[in-house]
Simulated assay, not measured.
Amino acid sequence: MKLHDLAHGRTGDKGDTSNISVIAYRPEDFPRLEAQVTSERVAAHLGQPSEAVTRYVLPKLCAMNFVIRGALAGGVTRSLALDAHGKCLSSVLLEMPLNPRGAG
C-alpha cells in the first residue's frame, strides 16, 4: 500500500523552501498516517537531510504539512532544475510505501 491510497497532497514553495500537505481521504485513516508519515520517513523518501524537514500536524483537518528547507536547489529564480517550483514533490511523496499492518 502506498500513501496515495489513503491521502492526497498539495505542494507549495517560497524561495528555496517547499511545503507539502498530506490530507487523509477518510478521518479514520488519519491516525495511521500520523504514525507512519513522520519527518524522518519523509526526509528519507525525498532524499533530504532529516533536519531539513519539519512536520506540522493538523488533526482537526486530518492533515499534515511538511516544510522542507533547501529542497528547491536555490528556488525558482536560481535553480536550473526542470521543476524549480517543486510542484511534483507531493506526487513523489504520495508514492511512499506504508506498513500494511498500520503501525509506524
Results as ranks from 00 to 15, higher is better:
residue 10 R to L: 13
residue 11 T to V: 05
residue 11 T to W: 04
residue 13 D to E: 13
residue 14 K to N: 09
residue 15 G to F: 01
residue 18 S to T: 09
residue 18 S to C: 14
residue 19 N to S: 14
residue 21 S to P: 03
residue 21 S to C: 06
residue 22 V to I: 15
residue 23 I to Y: 08
residue 25 Y to N: 13
residue 26 R to V: 11
residue 26 R to D: 15
residue 26 R to W: 11
residue 28 E to M: 04
residue 33 L to W: 01
residue 33 L to D: 02
residue 34 E to P: 02
residue 35 A to H: 04
residue 37 V to P: 00
residue 40 E to N: 13
residue 40 E to K: 15
residue 41 R to G: 07
residue 42 V to C: 08
residue 42 V to A: 10
residue 44 A to Q: 15
residue 44 A to T: 15
residue 44 A to V: 11
residue 45 H to Q: 07
residue 45 H to F: 13
residue 46 L to F: 00
residue 49 P to T: 07
residue 49 P to I: 10
residue 53 V to I: 10
residue 53 V to N: 08
residue 54 T to K: 15
residue 55 R to Y: 03
residue 59 P to H: 12
residue 60 K to H: 13
residue 60 K to C: 12
residue 60 K to V: 12
residue 61 L to E: 12
residue 63 A to Q: 01
residue 65 N to G: 07
residue 67 V to W: 10
residue 69 R to Q: 13
residue 71 A to T: 05
residue 72 L to K: 00
residue 74 G to K: 05
residue 74 G to D: 02
residue 76 V to S: 04
residue 76 V to W: 08
residue 77 T to H: 07
residue 77 T to D: 11
residue 77 T to P: 01
residue 77 T to W: 05
residue 77 T to S: 14
residue 82 L to S: 12
residue 83 D to N: 04
residue 84 A to T: 01
residue 85 H to I: 00
residue 87 K to A: 08
residue 89 L to G: 04
residue 90 S to W: 03
residue 92 V to H: 04
residue 96 M to V: 12
residue 99 N to E: 07
residue 101 R to A: 13
residue 103 A to C: 09
